[in-house]
């Protein structure tokens, strides 16, 4: 009899443990996802519903908030600016990282390790430190309040150079020999043979650069002053600040929703690469 009971006890303990874990995991999911759900609910309330205590937990369908928010600021302009800035920054990072990654990974030249350490040491310099001197430099070259001030300073990335150097280190000698026999130029070798192979790495670098560019606030806030060149997050902060004390939270929530939607769509499309990118930062530093 005891012989039958023991395994049953083990099974029961397993089920109990599983239940505890599932509860924990669901609690975690709720904590992290609820604020996003909450903004959807808020964006669909009327101003009278939003201040109810206790709050309504189910979306109410007051879509007019979206119309009101959309008409209250030049969002099309902000979106266009953001796509232009983030797109060009991403392109620039991919090109500069590929070229530097090729040089560091495939070529051997004097000062290679010194230069590579120098690139890595750029990571030590925080944006806060660069704010004042870069502002003065951009002012001197008349780049304040332009797209260029938001693109060129971010046109090279330590993370990108690092990952592409790692990639180019793994390009097999056989491939290089084959290209040599073909009489391929370096330029063709990089762009037509290596770049297609490096697509996963390039995608990771690309989406992170795009996301960081979209997220940028402090830099464009300081370096630009007119909505004609400002990106979406600055526009949103301006909309938030402009509404002042009498902020209509429902309308604001609608603006938060539609300004964030493109980034969420991007995330859902490239989820695997996003997570691979986060993992590779630690793997990279581990050497």
């Amino acid at each position: 009899m005891t012989g039958q009971e023991r395994p049953r006890l083990v099974v029961r303990m397993k089920i109990a443990r599983m239940a505890v874990k599932m509860t924990a995991i669901l609690a975690i999911l709720v904590v992290f996802v609820f604020p996003d759900y909450w903004v959807i609910v808020t964006s669909l309330d009327t101003p009278a519903q939003v201040v109810l205590v206790p709050p309504l937990l189910v979306p109410q369908g007051h879509w007019h908030n979206y119309v009101a928010a959309w008409l209250a600021a030049p969002w099309v302009r902000y979106f266009a600016n953001t796509f232009f800035i983030a797109g060009l920054t991403t392109l620039s990072v991919l090109v500069t990282s590929t070229l530097a990654g090729f040089a560091f990974g495939v070529l051997r030249f004097r000062g290679r390790s010194f230069l590579f350490s120098a690139v890595l040491s750029m990571m030590m310099i925080p944006l806060t430190v660069l704010l004042i001197p870069d502002y003065l430099i951009l002012k001197d070259i008349h780049w304040l309040n332009t797209y260029w001030a938001q693109i060129v300073p971010f046109g090279a990335s330590v993370f990108g150079i690092f990952l592409l150097r790692q990639f180019f280190l793994t390009v097999p000698q056989d491939l290089i020999d084959a290209a040599d026999i073909d009489g391929s130029s370096q330029w063709r070798f990089i762009w037509q043979i290596c770049v297609p192979m490096a697509r996963p790495v390039l995608t990771t670098i690309g989406i992170y650069t795009f996301m960081a560019s979209w997220d940028a606030f402090l830099w464009p806030y300081i370096m630009t002053s007119s909505p004609s060149v400002q990106p979406i997050e600055v526009g949103l902060a301006r909309f938030f600040g402009g509404a002042g004390v009498s902020t209509e939270w429902t309308v604001l929530a609608a603006a938060v929703m539609f300004t964030t939607l493109p980034i969420i769509v991007l995330f859902l499309f490239f989820q695997r690469q996003f997570i691979a990118g986060a993992s590779s930062t630690s793997a990279g530093v581990k050497g």
């Binding site: 975690i28 999911l29 992290f32 996802v33 604020p35 996003d36 996301m211 979209w214 997220d215 606030f217 997050e233 600055v234 949103l236 902060a237 938030f240 938060v256 300004t259 964030t260 980034i263 969420i264 991007l266 995330f267 996003f274 997570i275 986060a278």
Partner: peptide
């Protein structure tokens, strides 16, 4: 779900 806040912009 846990990763998603990280990719959404800080201002928003």
């Amino acid at each position: 779900g846990v990763f998603s806040p990280y990719i959404t912009p800080v201002v928003a």
